[in-house]
Design a protein around this nucleic acid. Structure first.
Lengths: 89, 89
DNA sequence: AACAAATATTAGAATATAATAATAATCCTG
DNA sequence: CAGGATTATTATTATATTCTAATATTTGTT
């Protein structure tokens, strides 16, 4: 189907951004909250939140609430495999 | 490096388009010329040529001239692995 | 309930991407 | 070298992304 390719393209687009690649690298070890990610990457909170939302909407990240925090984790390990392949250029 | 992630993002962006995914699927079996691809995909020649140029500029496709034709082939098999991973969602 | 911290959402401006149409460039063939 | 076919490039318009700033929401604490 052609709709499948549109979905696949959306998935790849979600990964195709330097900041989102950095987020994936950061979350590879363990989950982090939004503020934490923002500090490590030295980017604005709202921007981080938007990027996390994009990755989550594609099923790449998951979110759990813990205390007052939103902890984002990698949900789809295929994304890590893809990034590993891309690195091996 | 941060420039690496920019390059990685460009690589993924090249794959992150429905038409370019179709092109990759078509070229998986064997190389094809521009006109041929345009007919199979029912898209304008200039559009196809642009998409092929994007894939080539990222090192994903290669080009050889044969007779009066430009034959495009898959150069980087990692791209196929990535698309296979993406399909397995 | 009020306050503070953490996160999400929205609107806006700047930039990037994509499709079309038109034109240019390439390269066989006679 | 002229003509025709193939491919590449350019300009344009429409759409999509991205970042920032501002505001709203959510949640925990007192």
């Amino acid at each position: 189907m052609d709709q499948d390719r549109a979905i696949q393209a959306e998935y790849l687009k979600a990964l195709a951004h330097p900041t989102r690649i950095r987020i994936m690298e950061l979350l590879e070890r363990e989950g982090h909250c939004v503020t934490n990610i923002g500090e490590k990457l030295e980017l604005k909170q709202s921007n981080i939140s938007q990027h996390l939302g994009i990755l989550r909407s594609r099923g790449i990240l998951s979110l759990r609430r813990e205390g007052g925090l939103s902890i984002y984790c990698i949900k789809d390990p295929r994304a890590l495999e893809i990034l590993r392949l891309v690195r091996g250029s």
